[in-house]
Design a protein around this nucleic acid. Sequence first.
DNA 1: CGATTCTTTGAAAACAGTCAATCTGTGTGG
DNA 2: CCACACAGATTGACTGTTTTCAAAGAATCG
Lengths: 192, 192
Amino acid sequence: MFDQFRKYLDDKTNLSEEDFQLIESVSITKKLRKHQFLLAEGEVCSFNAFVCEGLLRKYSVDDKGIDRTVYFATENWWIADRKSLMEGTPSKYFIEAVENSTALLISKANFEMICERIAPFKDMVNLILQRSLNATHDRINNTFQSTAEEKYKHFLRSFPNLANRAPRHMVASYLGITPETLSRVRKDISTK
Amino acid sequence: MFDQFRKYLDDKTNLSEEDFQLIESVSITKKLRKHQFLLAEGEVCSFNAFVCEGLLRKYSVDDKGIDRTVYFATENWWIADRKSLMEGTPSKYFIEAVENSTALLISKANFEMICERIAPFKDMVNLILQRSLNATHDRINNTFQSTAEEKYKHFLRSFPNLANRAPRHMVASYLGITPETLSRVRKDISTK
DNA sequence: CGATTCTTTGAAAACAGTCAATCTGTGTGG
DNA sequence: CCACACAGATTGACTGTTTTCAAAGAATCG
């Protein structure tokens, strides 16, 4: 499992053998079965997770009981509730395995320790943060004023592989539309 | 002008007199008149800007010529197009003064230099990044599946002071609704 | 004051949401 | 291996919200 992470790190940054060993020593492999939760609402998020295989999803449930998917994470993506992690407050989110998945967890304390000791790692993390922020702004930019059809097409362009892996109702909740609307949009597109 | 920034830095982090002087030496005061652009679409963003006074707005213009406001920045907020800045690519955004404003600009090279030399500054920047990402996720969470009225009420709660300073059509474009809809929503709320 | 831009209002059309029913596929237990 | 149950996906009819287009009122700036 760590091999996957190692390849990722090798690609993104420049670490010594010693660095790898330190990181490996604090990485906990976690297998998740479909539907299993990595984090539940009300819990304090205590880790950063790197997804080795599978698909995870972060979502909240609103007053009316409706899912709001904030984020999907597949192979080589990170997932956590940063707000809960940073502030030590109860999370408003669930993180759930959409497929059987494997993730590497690094506890908050260990993550900070690694960042302290390995400067390139810290830089990488901050770079990822920046990219993530850019991507999130793009998402707002591309879906706020759009019709359901435009939103879905943009989703297909951005995550061509996710559209088939994630159940439709989750895609719908990611796009902020109902499953029924998504179904109709897909029909419209296919008959063109 | 630098006083304002200094107070901000004092509040957020812990810097020596020497650090302040270094930062001041690379900060360029820029006065902007209402409607003036700090960045235009197609330009490469070459700075980070700290707003001392006034109100700036970051927006793109879509195919149909409609504004999409991504971000407002008032006193003590940062603004830039991070993507363009990071990658050196042409920006898709405009950054425009909504009021007469004053900002401190720090060029990309100098900003990186400061981050290198002053570790607490770098940490502060990364903390801001994280908060910004959290706030953006909250924004998605709170406005994606909401009605126009809910979006506006959430905006009022989040930015009570902005609602009066920013023209309504900009607020509308921030919320992803038409100015007409915003006008009606406001009427509905006031007659309750 | 006049011109331009912003905001509001009205009526019609487009769009997405809701509710209920049906269809599909998957997995489970007999 | 089949039948059944169950969750997810689709479809239809209806409702409600938002957009669009057009026009009239404010407000602002030179």
